[in-house]
Amino acid sequence: MKNNFKYTAFIVLLLLVTYFVFVFLISSKTINNYYQGILMLIMINVMLAVSLNLVTGFLGQLTLGHAGFMAIGAYVSALFTKVSELPDILSFVIALILAGIAAAAAGIIIGIPALRLKGDYIAILTLSAGEIIRGLIIYFDEYTGGSRGMKMIPAYSNFSNVFWIMIITIFVIYSIIHSRHGRAVIAIREDEIAAESVGINIVNYKLFAFCISAFFAGVAGALFAHYNTLLDPNNFDYNYSIEMLIMVVFGGMGSLTGSIVAALGLTALPQILSDFSNYRMLLYSILLIIIMLFKPSGLFGTHEFSIMAIGGLFKGKKSKTKKRGDL
């Protein structure tokens, strides 16, 4: 615990350095618009993977509707900023919060029936819920533009705000996992009957996890909308949900750092390989098969990657990863 302050200070410093390096690279045009676009997509995918991990990795429920929550966030925020006459920043902040709340509400609505189900059935339910959301967006084309898409969304997202919102998302979910509420969520994953026997209200905590997870998916959707300035309902089909799930599984269910690394790698990889576009899906799938064969629990399993442990490596200590719960 003593090193805690030092550790936090180090992380904050590292984040600031990363941030300013990128800001410098972007302003000096070393990172051009194309790469900046990939960067934004990476950060949004990190948010999505981390928030999905709360439900899939920590609560242990397989869900396939995350893109649906993202879509709700995207459309709600875009509808708001398009009509809002408030100053840009204020309007964007309100839009982000609205997006989160709308998605969280949807998370609860879908969570309630999902509570009665287990395993594969939850996957089917959430998959169809995601598709229903997309269907509704297409149906109400008066407001959403339907299949033609929604255009002229103000471009409020930039590297700075997306970066810090991503950091906040990671921090909030990390904190939840390391609080008593997170322990309750993890206990449900480990053994529902035992969790109830130690006084944990399973229904509440499942909804809690669904709600928080959907909230951040909604916020990520809002950032996406205001970066892309154009929304097409087909952006949010189940393929995207599956892609997010792959990131979570790839990084390790129950490892936030795993999700971050996987989201980064799996978003960047197809872009880097765009020269070999014929083979990139092949490579992508081979990579997945290799991971599932040799490390079925994902890159990090349930462990967290820790910078302290790398420091320890130089001092000759063995452990490379940090167990959840160590301070």
Binding site: R180, A187, E190, G199, G254, R324
Partner: peptide
Amino acid sequence: RLFKGLTVIENVKTAFH
């Protein structure tokens, strides 16, 4: 029925919920 994937102390801490 322990929380098998968790450490000994986490098992107990969870019960203090």
